[in-house]
């Protein structure tokens, strides 16, 4: 048994002193901006000023009467649902595949993980170029193969743009899911599968009774993280489409940017930012409940 540690008053003071820079940094980088957003959301702040007139909940009333907000909210749900759903589906499938033994498995793993390592701006430029209406390879192949007569408006049709953005997001971020699930898959003892095989369990039964319970906590945690990160994703969408055409790909984070830096409406932008905060908090609840349940099961 370890010896109890005696803490002297001087030690405590030193500990606080040592922690002070980190606490100050955290306060400066997280607490101050968060408080500032709450403060800005109830003010009408003119361009070039740090603060403005107190307007109470007027920014929220304006927001909830704004059709653009509801369009962005709808797009945000589609963006989160589509992206996270497909990423988890493909990510888990690919992880199961990469967990099997086959020739050049190392190469397949490297290639599959590459999109996640690419900087977003590079990925965006590559996809914008590939989807270009004039010189894009995708349209060139489609036209050459006789599939379409005119270029498809991948990122410029209000009907197709959000789907295109989701697919590019899935391509970019699925490797994160692969890494997470593959890691836990590799920790499952092979003897369990051997024993199950001896007992006559088929692949499906082995997956349901051995694999699934093992990966479930990591699966839930990964889905949770991907949901949070996807909910406030800005760069990929803005760089691909700028939120257009019309408002077809404007999600809430993009709307925050438009209100803040295009309409010079810091109060309105802050109100939307708080809605995003609330939205993420609400999305976390079911995930956390499932996570607690799966932990308890284990």
């Amino acid at each position: 048994m370890a010896e109890p540690v005696t803490v002297y008053p001087g030690d405590r003071r030193f500990a606080y002193l040592a922690l002070a820079p980190s606490v100050a940094l955290v306060l400066m980088l997280i607490a101050v901006p968060t408080v500032a957003i709450f403060a800005l959301a109830v003010q009408d702040v003119p361009l070039g000023r740090y603060s403005g007139d107190f307007v109470g909940l007027a920014n929220f009333r304006r927001l909830f009467a704004d059709a653009d907000f509801y369009a962005a909210l709808g797009n945000t749900f589609i963006w989160i649902g589509g992206s996270v759903g497909l990423e988890m589906l493909f990510g888990t499938g690919l992880a199961l595949l990469l967990n099997q033994r086959f020739p050049l498995r190392w190469l397949a793993r490297t290639i599959l993980l590459a999109p996640y390592l690419l900087p977003t701006i590079v990925a965006v430029l590559v996809w914008r170029y590939m989807f270009d209406d004039i010189v894009g390879i995708v349209n060139h192949i489609a036209i050459s193969a006789g599939l379409v007569a005119r270029p498809i408006q991948w990122l410029t049709s209000p009907r197709v743009a959000l789907l295109s953005v989701i697919l590019i997001g899935v391509w970019k971020f699925t490797p994160f899911v692969v890494i997470a699930i593959l890691g836990i898959l590799q920790s499952i003892p092979g003897e369990q599968y051997d024993a199950a095989k001896l007992d006559g369990a088929g692949p499906v039964r082995r997956f349901v009774t051995i694999t699934l319970p093992h990966i479930l906590p990591v699966f839930v945690l990964t889905a949770l993280l991907r949901t949070i990160w996807t909910a406030h994703k800005f760069d990929l969408i803005y760089l691909l489409t700028g939120g257009g055409p019309i408002n077809a790909t404007t999600t809430l984070p993009v709307l925050v940017y438009v209100r803040g830096f295009h309409d010079f409406d810091a109060g309105g932008a802050s109100a939307i930012a708080l809605v995003i905060l609330l939205l993420i908090a609400l999305l976390l609840v079911p995930y956390l409940l499932i996570h607690r349940w799966s932990e308890a099961r284990q």
Binding site: D132, I134, Q153, L155, T156, T241
Partner: peptide, 8 residues
């Protein structure tokens, strides 16, 4: 008569 990508 314009390229479809003009929207962006």
């Amino acid at each position: 008569s314009v390229p479809p990508g003009v929207v962006n």
